[in-house]
């Protein structure tokens, strides 16, 4: 085994250490790179921006804590955007493992950031199991699925829900989704009830949703930390008074950028070693 071959079969733990150091450096010394806006994120922002005060959207927290770093910033930005526009937000959760906890945390954050009022500006209806069934049932009557909110207040006594009975009374449904639930929002809710659907997904899932977006089954996609940082940037541009609030996705993009560079380096390094090994083997033969 020659030196190039040894380098080619580099121990994966070395790669792990370099990736770890690459992730650590921008956390200690932030770079502050500029955010480029992509059309799928702009489409979602524009759709919300075009709404009028009093319009309502459904924000479905279909993710757990593992996806929090990628999807929490999207939730924060969308909630801030709606609060500034006076758009009512109906929060639901269809993800069993922590979805409702993620919703509680984001609404608490909104209370702290913008003094939004539970029940008046937004409501958190809580969690319901068996995602496709409640999704379909909400097309007829949301109250049949969520007879009360996460705090046990009856649906009919919540001011923000006045006049909202089904998807027909909503302008948009946004699912911040991991696993299969995002696809169901497209295949079940958009296809059967016609309501506009937008998705916030992890970076890994984002490519899949481009196909749905191009087919006009989703109005836009926020993909991973980059999507979150773009929405943060758009909200900050439109509402300069929000600039002081935390922008964790924008900060996270520094880490993502450096780790991407590390991976690109290893891919190129691996290929150089691969070619050298091949040539050496050919030469030896």
């Amino acid at each position: 085994m020659n030196w190039a071959h040894k380098l080619l079969l580099i121990d994966r733990r070395i790669i792990f250490v370099v990736v770890f150091v690459g992730a650590l450096i921008p956390i200690i010394w932030p770079i502050g790179l500029a955010v480029q806006i992509s059309p799928p994120v702009k489409a979602v922002f524009d759709r919300v921006e075009a709404m009028k005060p009093g319009d309502a959207i459904m924000l479905s927290f279909d993710y757990g804590p593992s996806d929090g770093p990628e999807l929490d910033p999207m939730a924060n930005s969308i909630l801030r955007h709606c609060a500034k526009k006076g758009i009512k937000v109906i929060g639901v959760s269809l993800f069993p493992l922590g979805g409702v906890e993620m919703a509680i945390a984001r609404f608490m954050q909104l209370d702290t950031d913008l003094k939004a009022r539970n029940g008046i500006d937004y409501v958190n209806l809580g969690y319901k199991d068996g995602a496709p069934a409640p999704m379909k049932a909400m097309g007829d009557r949301i109250e049949s699925v969520f007879p009360c909110d996460a705090n046990g207040v009856p649906y009919s006594e919540i001011p923000v829900l006045e006049g909202i009975r089904s998807y027909d009374d909503l302008e948009l449904a946004i699912s911040l989704a991991t696993s299969i639930i995002g696809e169901w929002w497209i295949n079940l809710v958009n296809a059967q009830f016609g309501i506009d659907v937008a998705l916030g997904t992890t970076a890994v899932s984002a490519p899949k949703y481009y196909a749905f977006m191009e087919a006009k089954q989703a109005i836009g996609v926020l993909g991973g930390m980059k999507g979150g940082s773009e929405y943060e940037e758009l909200v900050a541009r439109a509402y300069p008074d929000l600039k002081g609030l935390s922008r964790s996705a924008t900060m996270g993009m520094d880490v993502q950028s450096v780790v991407h560079l590390v991976i690109i380096f290893f891919i190129l390094f691996g290929n150089v070693m691969f070619i050298v090994t091949k040539r050496m083997t050919r030469g030896a033969n």
Binding site: R12, F16, P69, I267
Partner: peptide, 17 residues
């Protein structure tokens, strides 16, 4: 949970390599 998910970055690096 976040720790487990972040492991993906390391595995993506080694798998891409």
């Amino acid at each position: 949970q976040a720790t487990m998910f972040s492991l993906l970055a390391f595995y993506v690096a080694s798998a891409s390599y």
